[in-house]
């Protein structure tokens, strides 16, 4: 059962990721991203990280992808990318070779280091409920970082408003 869920969710993740890279239309790429994010959320559930799975669906698939789609529609770039202009020759083939090399190297390193992890399966019996353990860690050991994230979010929102504001007396 665990293996079936793993295989199905992995197929979702990988096909969505390939879709993000391959689709010419940015809207389709965003939908591929949604597929990948839901697959990762399924993996989180099967690894007993229930809170993170919920946050993944709400924040990533809910907020971030909607923001992407909003910007795509707002800018009107929802047409196919013009691939005939090649500013840098050889860039795409070299990039594909480099990406495949990175993938093979990292995956090979993981497989080689598999012995250090032991043969135990991922799912272990947690002593405490997931949300309670996470909250205890977040509000005791990492409370300073947690407060700093609130500062970061405020700064990000204020900065974006300043960036995208239209100045009244601009020449454009």
């Amino acid at each position: 059962m665990e293996l079936i869920v793993f295989v199905l969710a992995s197929a979702m993740v990988l096909s969505g990721a390939v879709g993000v890279v391959m689709f010419k239309n940015p809207v389709h790429a965003a939908l591929g991203l949604v597929l990948t994010l839901f697959g990762v959320a399924v993996h989180f559930v099967s690894m007993e990280a229930h809170f993170l799975a919920a946050v993944q669906v709400i924040v990533y698939a809910g907020a971030i992808v909607v923001l992407f789609l909003f910007v795509i529609m707002l800018l009107g770039v929802d047409r196919a990318e013009d691939l005939t202009i090649e500013p840098l020759k050889l860039q795409r083939p070299v990039a594909a070779v480099l990406g495949a090399g990175v993938t093979v190297l990292v995956a090979g390193a993981v497989v080689r280091g598999a012995d250090t992890l032991g043969r135990e399966s991922v799912v272990s019996a947690p002593g405490d409920s997931n949300i309670r353990a996470l909250a205890r860690s977040l509000y005791s050991d990492h409370v300073l970082a947690f407060e700093l994230t609130s500062v970061l979010l405020i700064v990000a929102v204020a900065g974006t408003v300043v960036l995208t504001r239209r100045v009244k007396k601009s020449e454009g």
């Binding site: 993000v20 990406g99 993938t103 993981v110 399966s121």
Partner: peptide, 23 residues
Amino acid sequence: EPTTTSYLVLAALLFGIGATGLM
């Protein structure tokens, strides 16, 4: 059951696809 290594390999593949797409 899926082991930790299988999750790590999946993450490596996902990272590689993302890096390729970025380039």
